[in-house]
Write a protein that binds this DNA or RNA. Structure first.
Lengths: 236, 236
DNA sequence: AAGAATTTTGACCAGTTGGAAAAATGTTAG
DNA sequence: CTAACATTTTTCCAACTGGTCAAAATTCTT
């Protein structure tokens, strides 16, 4: 048997060798070097920028390499396939993305909980719009690369939180309504400010389209989810 | 002066000659032939399918031609550039897309009007999901090809309808709140069912993810926009 | 300081992409 | 029926795409 040729690039990528049988024993996985950690971060950051703007198919490795400030082959040394970068990005994203929902506490009271959930989602739309768009892009395309994640992890989490909401409804602390669509409406209204940012800015115009729009949105959404649009005090 | 060579392909496309000065006098625009009308429709339908799934950059002329059941050069005979197809699609879309908002009547009462606006938007999400996704794709990418449309046509319409909402608020018929964000929230919640369809289905699961989801959504949204989530009757 | 390992580069490749040109085929008004 | 026009097919191309590979340059370890 010839000596096994081990190029480091192959040990770096834990997820390498998509179909061929692994020639490198699993134990051989070296810890990442400093440069590897740094460069991977730079690449992921650049990829986020490009993928979130053009979607998977529309993004090119050249563009990503360009934004990352390195040559294409150099980039491919760290992530041997385009899909690898995307996969990493999405799976890291999904964890942090669902964090706010995870924090919704069954032992708390519904309105503080829901209110702070909305706030946090809105903050994420403001601070991480590219992540939101990356996710939206994937959804628009039918989530071909993450169907399993949403069918299992996401579904389980939502099922769990729907039960929490139902519990509150049973206690009479929350209007009886569909908990799933309730969650959808929070997602939709908050992520809208990241995904449709251009539209929001354009419609609000230069005057009201500044950073204040997130505060306005927070105030409005609080009112909507708490009381709806029925007038409470009658005008004098 | 040599005789002006007029290939029909050039008269068909009214929007041809992007930069060069027009060599064909405007009067020379022939009416479309039967075949031209038919084939253009087929192409636009196919393009909608492909663009809405992959975005502008991710879609290829080959794919569109394939779905349309014709060869690429044949397709290019009708729309000499990829962008041309996209432009047509988007501008036709925007008109019908905003129709429901246009119908919101200042002389009506707010709740029937808003209620039926939500219903109509939800029906569009159900019946024309590809159109919704095409639009969403364009927004995600920063609306590079339609910035003018949203900054002028869309903005004007929303400004007008925001005034209508403000009028209702002044009359005490509607809770005083931000009319722009109110409109955004209707867009977001309804279009969500088209744009994030995969997610919605996955989360609802096979049982509740069927066509009934739109009725459930309508009921939920009605409740949300009318009364919010505050419980009205206290549980016995 | 030297040898080993890692990182970067440049040249290259096969497949795809948007599109052009011209020849071949269809359609239709007179 | 036929000339003029409309449509379709065939062939082709240059630029771009994801990705490979060996060699050169750099960094790390001792």
């Amino acid at each position: 048997m010839p000596p096994i040729k081990v190029k480091n690039a192959e040990t770096v990528l834990v997820t390498k060798r998509p179909d061929k049988t692994a020639t490198v024993p699993a134990t051989k996985v070296r810890p990442l070097t400093r440069i590897q950690r740094e460069k991977q971060d730079i690449i992921l950051e650049a990829a986020l920028e490009v993928f979130s703007l053009h979607g998977f198919r529309g993004a090119t490795i050249d563009q990503i390499a360009d934004v990352a400030g390195m040559s294409k082959p150099n980039l491919l040394y760290y992530f041997p396939r385009k899909e690898e970068i995307h996969r990493r990005l999405i799976s890291e994203l999904l964890v942090t993305w669902l964090e706010p929902l995870r924090e919704m506490d069954a032992d708390g009271d519904p309105f503080p909980e829901i209110r702070s959930y909305i706030r946090r989602k809105l903050e994420m739309a403001r601070d991480f719009p590219r992540e939101s768009r990356l996710f939206a892009n994937e959804m628009l395309q039918g989530a071909p690369r993450i169907s399993e994640m949403i069918e299992v992890d996401l579904k389980n989490l939502v099922d769990e939180k729907a039960k929490v909401l139902l519990g509150w409804m049973d206690e009479g602390k929350l209007a009886r309504t569909d908990p799933y669509h309730l969650i959808f409406s929070i997602w939709a209204t908050t992520q809208h400010y990241a995904d449709f940012d251009v539209q929001v800015r354009a419609v609000l115009g230069p005057g009201r389209g500044g950073e204040g729009r997130f505060e306005d949105a927070a105030r409005y959404l609080e009112q909507l989810f708490l009381h709806g649009l029925t007038p409470r005090k009658v005008a004098v």
